[in-house]
Design a binder for these strands. Structure first.
Length: 589
RNA sequence: CGGGGCGUAGCGUAGUGGCUAGCGCGCCUGCUUUGGGAGCAGGAGAUCGGGAGUUCGAAUCUCCCCGCCCCGACCA
C-alpha cells in the first residue's frame, strides 16, 4: 500500500478546532482523521477509516480466535422485541425511534440483546447446541442527552457486541472467562493501557460484571485501585468496609440540645466545639461525628414515587451515581420543597433518625451508610428546627431499616479486599463483560431441552467493546504536544516517507524506496507533494502520528536516508543500500 | 432538563450604532524559495445562525427561534 499525499483526501489544520476540548477530539480533527457532521455524529476520512478498520480487524480477529461466530443484524429494528423486554419504554429518550410509511414503529438499535436472543430461539432447542457465542460489529445509536468529547461519546458509534448462551451457571462462567481472556488479548494488541474493574457491587447481589477502563484524565468513569493489592472497582461498585461494632458503655444518654443557626454541618460542628457543655473531653468534634440524613424521591419505572432517607456521616456526600446504581432502574431526585410539604414530620435541616424509618410516623424508609454500625455515637437532627440530638447511639437509641452503600468514595478510603488505601482515577470504558443471566431469555422465552428432557431457560452473557471509541481512547493515551502517535498495528501506515528538497533526486529516490517497501508488504504513507516546504511536511508527519518517519533529503547526496522514531524522536542515518532491510526490521519488531 | 459560554469565508478570529465587514491560516495564478508550518505580487471566497422589531443607518441594540461548546443531571 502506498498512500500518496499529493492525492490523498486530507487536509490537516494548523489551528485547533474551537469546539474540541479533549486531545483525541482535537488531534483527530486537526489531523484530518474525522469530521463532525452533527452533534455526536462523525465521518471517518481516509486516514481515520484506515485506523478504524485496523482496530475493527484486531477486534474481529481476536473474537474469531476465541471461537466466536460473527453475524450481522440490521441497525434498524422493529419495536416488538423491545416491547417484550420493556425497553421500548425503559430506554426513554435515549432511543432513536422512527416510523415507516404505514406508521409502524422502528428503532435504531442501541444494543441487540433482544435480537440475538430471538435469533437463537428460532434456531436452537437442545442443550446439545450449547454453548454458543455469536457476535457482531455494528453501528449503534443512542440519542444521548449530551454527546461530548468527539468520538469518545457519540450518538452513533460502532460496537462489537457478543452474547453467550449456556444451559447453566457454570457454562456461563466459562463463556464469561473466555471473553475476559479475549478482551485482554484484544486491548493488549490495540496498545491500550487498561484496567479491569469490577462494575457491580457484590453487596447488592448482582451478576458478575467487569469493565475494561483505559485510564486517562478525560475518562468519564471514576474508579478506585488499591495501592497494596490488585483490587479495582468502578466507584459505583466500591464496597465500603463496615467497622466492628463499637462499645456502648460509657456513652452518655442521648440528649437534645438547642443549636440555633446551624443550618450546615460545619456550623453545627463549630457550635458543638465552642460550647463547654457540649465539647468532647478527648478530642474536638468533627463532621464525621455527625449523621446527615438526606431525603430522596425515588421514581420507579411504573411512575411510582417513594421517599427514601439515606443517612451518611456528615463529612461525606451521597454520591448520586452510586445511589442510582443501587436503585436502578429507579431514578432518585433530591427532595423538593413540595415533598417536604407533603411530609410535615420531616423538618428540613434537622432531620434525625427519630422521624425516619418504616415504623416511624413518617413511614419513610431509612437506610444508613455501612459505617453506622451498632455502638457508633452521633450528633444528628432532632426533628425540630434549631435542635440537634447528641450522643445518639446506633443500636441503642435508633435503628435503620437497612444499610445502603452510596456515600462518596474518597482517595485514601480503605480497600475492601485487603484494608490498604484506595486511589481514585478516571478512565474511558472501552469494554464491558456482563453475566446477564436469564433476564432476556425469560422475557423472550428462550428455552432448550436439557439431558433429562426438561425445558430449561438459557442463561446469557453480553459483552461489548467500543470499537470506534477504542480509536479515540488510543489517541487519548498515545499522543504528545506535536500530535498523535499510533501503535503500529492500528496506524494508518507503517512508515511516513517524506521527500524534501527542490531537486528531482530526492523524489525519485523516495519513489524507488516506496515501491520497494510496498513490494515487501510495508504500508507506506508517502509525502510526495512538490512545492511544500520541509517544515510543513515534518509537522504533518508528527501530527499524523505514523510510528516511523523516513526522510529522503539533505543527506541523500552523501548516500544517507534518515529514519526517525515518532514516539522517542530518535533518529539515525542509514545508507541508502540498507534502508529497505532496516525498515523491514523496524516494522517487524 | 438546570447552569455557563458562543454563533462573522473551509479553519482560527477582529470588529459594542456610521462609509466598501478587517486579519491570519488554507485555497487559486505567477515568480522566487526548499531541513522545521517560506517570500513577493495578484486573486476567489461571507444572505455576519434565522426571523421580526427599534433606528436616517444594525454584525453591533431589543424580542422570538435555531444551532454549537463546556459543567452538572442523564447515560446495561
Amino acid at each position: 500500500m502506498i498512500l500518496r499525499m499529493s492525492t490523498l483526501f486530507l487536509r490537516t489544520l494548523r489551528d485547533d478546532p474551537a469546539d474540541a476540548e479533549v486531545p483525541s477530539h482535537r488531534l483527530l480533527v486537526r489531523g484530518g482523521y474525522v469530521r463532525r457532521v452533527a452533534p455526536g455524529v462523525f465521518t471517518w476520512l481516509p486516514l481515520g477509516f484506515l485506523v478504524y478498520r485496523n482496530v475493527e480487524a484486531i477486534v474481529r480477529n481476536e473474537m474469531d480466535a476465541a471461537g466466536f461466530q460473527e453475524v450481522h443484524f440490521p441497525a434498524m429494528l422493529p419495536r416488538e422485541p423491545y416491547e417484550q423486554t420493556n425497553r421500548w419504554t425503559e430506554y426513554g429518550d435515549t432511543l432513536f425511534r422512527l416510523k415507516d410509511r404505514k406508521g409502524a414503529d422502528y428503532l435504531l438499535g442501541p444494543t441487540h440483546e433482544e435480537m440475538f436472543t430471538l435469533l437463537v430461539k428460532g434456531e436452537y432447542s437442545s442443550y446439545k447446541d450449547l454453548p454458543l457465542v455469536i457476535y457482531q460489529i455494528q453501528t449503534k445509536f443512542r440519542d444521548e442527552a449530551r454527546p461530548r468529547a468527539g468520538i469518545l461519546r457519540g450518538r452513533e458509534f460502532v460496537m462489537k457486541d457478543s452474547y453467550s448462551f449456556d444451559v447453566d451457571d457454570d457454562g456461563l462462567a466459562r463463556s464469561y472467562a473466555r471473553h475476559r481472556d479475549a478482551y485482554i488479548a484484544t486491548f493488549e494488541r490495540l496498545g491500550l493501557d487498561f484496567v479491569i474493574v469490577s462494575a457491580m457491587s457484590g453487596a447488592m447481589g448482582g451478576s458478575a460484571s467487569e469493565e475494561f477502563l483505559a485510564p486517562t484524565e478525560v475518562g468519564e468513569d471514576s474508579f478506585v485501585r488499591c495501592t497494596s493489592c490488585d483490587y479495582a472497582a468502578n466507584v459505583e461498585a466500591v464496597v465500603t468496609t463496615a467497622p466492628a461494632d463499637a462499645e456502648v458503655s460509657g456513652v452518655p444518654a442521648a440528649h437534645v440540645e438547642q443549636t440555633p443557626d446551624t443550618p450546615t454541618i460545619e456550623t453545627l460542628v463549630d457550635l458543638a466545639n465552642g460550647r463547654d457543655d457540649l465539647a468532647r473531653a478527648d478530642r474536638p468534634w468533627t463532621a464525621a461525628d455527625t449523621l446527615k440524613n438526606v431525603l430522596f424521591m425515588v421514581t420507579g419505572t411504573d411512575g411510582s414515587r417513594t421517599p427514601l432517607a439515606v443517612g451518611v456521616p456528615g463529612d461525606r456526600e451521597v454520591d448520586l451515581k452510586r445511589l442510582e446504581a443501587v436503585l436502578q432502574p429507579g431514578i432518585a431526585t433530591v427532595f423538593e420543597e413540595a415533598d417536604f410539604v407533603a411530609h410535615p414530620s420531616l423538618v428540613k435541616g434537622y432531620i434525625g433518625p427519630g422521624a425516619l424509618g418504616e415504623a416511624s410516623a413518617s413511614g419513610v424508609r431509612y437506610l444508613v451508610d455501612p459505617r453506622v454500625v451498632s455502638g457508633t455515637r452521633w450528633i444528628t437532627g432532632a426533628n425540630e428546627s434549631g435542635r440537634h440530638v447528641f450522643d445518639l447511639v446506633a443500636g441503642r437509641d435508633f435503628s435503620a431499616d437497612g444499610v445502603i452503600d452510596v456515600a462518596e468514595v474518597r482517595e485514601g478510603d480503605a480497600c475492601p479486599a485487603c484494608g490498604g488505601q484506595l486511589t481514585l482515577a478516571r478512565g474511558i470504558e472501552i469494554g464491558h463483560i456482563f453475566q446477564l443471566g436469564r433476564k432476556y431469555a425469560e422475557a423472550l422465552d428462550l428455552k432448550v431441552l436439557d439431558e433429562t428432557g426438561r425445558l430449561v431457560t438459557v442463561t446469557m452473557g453480553s459483552y461489548g467493546i467500543g470499537v470506534s471509541r477504542a480509536v479515540a481512547a488510543i489517541a487519548e493515551q498515545s499522543h504528545d504536544e506535536r500530535g498523535l502517535i499510533w501503535p503500529r498495528e492500528v496506524s494508518p501506515a507503517d512508515i511516513h516517507l517524506i521527500a524534501t528538497g527542490k531537486s528531482d533526486e530526492a523524489f525519485e529516490a523516495a519513489e524507488v524506496i516506496a515501491t520497494q517497501l510496498d513490494a515487501v508488504g510495508v504500508r507506506v504513507l508517502f509525502d510526495d507533494r512538490r512545492g511544500v516546504s520541509p517544515g510543513v511536511k515534518f509537522n504533518d508527519s508528527e501530527l499524523l502520528g505514523v510510528p516511523t518517519i523516513v526522510v529522503v533529503g539533505k543527506r541523500l547526496a552523501e548516500g544517507f536516508i534518515e529514519i526517525k522514531d515518532r514516539r522517542t524522536g530518535d533518529r539515525e542515518d542509514v545508507p541508502v543500500a540498507d534502508v529497505i532491510e532496516v525498515i523491514r526490521a523496524i516494522v517487524a519488531a
